Each structure stands twice: as structure tokens, then as C-alpha cells.
Amino acid sequence: MQTEIILLGHGSRSLEANHGLIKVANKVTHLVNRPVTPAFVSHGTPDLPSAIIVKILSGATRIIIMPLFLFRGMYVSTGIYEEIKDIKEQFPQIEIIVAKELGADDIIANLAYSRIKETIGHEFSDEPFQ
């Protein structure tokens, strides 16, 4: 089974912002030791359906979509599934899995804490949230 991974971000008119998603995809590529493709909801290429089709045409039998969104808003809850509905019908033999969004995770809280601390100094304790 050939598993492929797509890292899905919102996208922006700012190329610098879109480059951020590409940088994260490259970092995840090194962590999972396999290619991770960035895709964009809007204002960037490829869009999600295009990225999925490229993966299928290159031989993927399973595609994991990792939404790089903090919370489960409308797009994560329904929009992704609406975008991939036709592809799933056209390629029923391909397993397409949508991973859970980032969510209210301790890692996110610790990252926010780190950014606050680096912005205003060392007023806070050095103990991360647990």
C-alpha cells in the first residue's frame, strides 16, 4: 500500500505566508521520512483536489490529509469532505483519510507560551504547561 501525505493549510495572498506552509511540509517530510505535499484551501497551489489527483496518478492507494488548522471549524468539519466527495466517488479503491486538526493540545499551549515569553521577556516561570 502506497501511503501519501498532504499537509493542508488555508493559503494567503501573501507568498511569504504560503511559503510558511511549504516550510512546515518540508520539516514534516524529514520527521516522517517520506514526502509531504503542501496544499491550500485558497490563494495557493496546489489546491486540495489537485494534490489528491496527483497522488492518485502517481500510484497512491492511501492518502492522509493533515489539516493544519487549530480548531474544528466549518471547513475542517465539512468543507474538506465536500471537496473530496467527487474524488472518492471517482476513485473508490483509494483510501482517503482526514487526520484530526491540531486542536487544543498541550503542545499548542506550550508554543503559545514560548512566543509570549520571547515577546515580553522572562517574567514567567520556565515550567511548560502540563
Score class of each variant (00 low, 15 high):
residue 125 S to V: 02
residue 98 V to A: 08
residue 25 A to I: 00
residue 55 K to G: 01
residue 89 E to W: 04
residue 33 N to D: 11
residue 13 R to Y: 03
residue 73 G to S: 04
residue 70 L to T: 09
residue 112 A to Q: 12
residue 42 S to E: 15
residue 42 S to L: 13
residue 27 K to L: 03
residue 50 S to E: 12
residue 41 V to F: 12
residue 31 L to Q: 14
residue 90 Q to L: 09
residue 10 H to L: 08
residue 113 Y to W: 14
residue 66 M to N: 14
residue 30 H to N: 14
residue 88 K to W: 05
residue 7 L to R: 08
residue 61 T to V: 05
residue 49 P to T: 03
residue 63 I to S: 01
residue 86 D to N: 14
residue 98 V to D: 04
residue 118 E to N: 11
residue 59 G to V: 06
residue 48 L to A: 02
residue 38 P to H: 10
residue 126 D to G: 08
residue 86 D to L: 14
residue 116 I to Y: 10
residue 50 S to N: 12
residue 104 A to W: 09
residue 23 K to M: 11
residue 73 G to Y: 11
residue 60 A to V: 08
residue 103 G to V: 00
residue 35 P to E: 11
residue 100 K to W: 07
residue 105 D to S: 12
residue 10 H to G: 11
residue 118 E to M: 08
residue 66 M to W: 12
residue 64 I to C: 06
residue 18 N to M: 00
residue 54 V to T: 15
residue 1 M to R: 01
residue 59 G to R: 00
residue 13 R to C: 01
residue 47 D to T: 12
residue 8 L to V: 10
residue 113 Y to Q: 12
residue 95 E to Q: 07
residue 90 Q to F: 02
residue 59 G to F: 07
residue 58 S to K: 15
residue 5 I to E: 04
residue 70 L to M: 11
residue 28 V to L: 10
residue 15 L to F: 01
residue 44 G to P: 01
residue 4 E to D: 00
residue 14 S to A: 06
residue 46 P to H: 07
residue 127 E to N: 10
residue 65 I to R: 09
residue 53 I to T: 06
residue 106 D to E: 06
residue 5 I to A: 02
residue 65 I to W: 09
residue 1 M to Y: 01
residue 32 V to H: 07
residue 12 S to V: 00
residue 37 T to M: 13
residue 11 G to K: 04
residue 80 I to T: 09
residue 49 P to I: 02
residue 18 N to L: 02
residue 2 Q to V: 09
residue 64 I to D: 10
residue 76 V to E: 07
residue 104 A to Q: 11
residue 122 H to F: 07
residue 2 Q to Y: 01
residue 73 G to C: 08
residue 16 E to Q: 05
residue 28 V to N: 03
residue 23 K to Q: 14
residue 47 D to Q: 09
residue 75 Y to L: 10
residue 122 H to T: 10
residue 35 P to S: 10
residue 38 P to G: 06
residue 85 K to W: 01
residue 7 L to K: 05
residue 18 N to H: 03
residue 128 P to Y: 04
residue 13 R to I: 05
residue 66 M to F: 15
residue 104 A to Y: 13
residue 68 L to N: 11
residue 119 T to Y: 14
residue 67 P to D: 04
residue 121 G to F: 10
residue 41 V to L: 14
residue 4 E to L: 00
residue 115 R to M: 00
residue 124 F to E: 00
residue 98 V to Y: 09
residue 25 A to G: 03
residue 52 I to M: 14
residue 79 G to P: 02
residue 95 E to I: 00
residue 126 D to Q: 11
residue 51 A to C: 04
residue 55 K to Q: 15
residue 74 M to S: 08
residue 22 I to M: 04
residue 73 G to T: 00
residue 124 F to L: 14
residue 119 T to N: 13
residue 39 A to I: 03
residue 25 A to P: 06
residue 16 E to C: 01
residue 9 G to R: 08
residue 11 G to C: 05
residue 112 A to V: 15
residue 50 S to Y: 07
residue 55 K to E: 12
residue 119 T to H: 15
residue 21 L to Q: 09
residue 95 E to Y: 07
residue 90 Q to V: 01
